[in-house]
């Protein structure tokens, strides 16, 4: 099964790690000074990582659909 992960802009990410600390699923880690989302973890798309990022480098975009 394909698991959706937050989008990370490596150019904008300065590796501050705030998103790593706030992720309730422990789904984000820092590799080579840049944040990466872990594929094995099922992301709840809560958007906390996006909210705390000072550089707008991590995004949880929504696909808007009709029921």
């Amino acid at each position: 099964m394909y698991i959706m992960k937050p989008e990370i802009d490596k150019e904008k990410c300065d590796g501050c790690g705030l998103c790593v600390g706030v992720c309730l699923e422990n789904g984000i880690m820092i590799v080579d000074k840049t944040v990466v989302a872990i594929a094995e973890v099922e992301c709840d798309w809560c958007g906390i990582c996006e909210a705390v990022c000072p550089n707008d480098a991590i995004r949880c975009p929504f696909q808007i659909i009709f029921a």
């Binding site: 996006e50 995004r59 949880c60 975009p61 929504f62 808007i64 659909i65 009709f66």
Partner: peptide, 20 residues
């Protein structure tokens, strides 16, 4: 904004973050 960007008739709508 939600209505304008919703997926319709097979077209893929824009994916928007809360920041967007």
């Amino acid at each position: 904004i939600l209505l304008e960007n919703a997926v319709r008739d097979g077209e893929s709508g824009a994916k928007l973050t809360q920041r967007d």
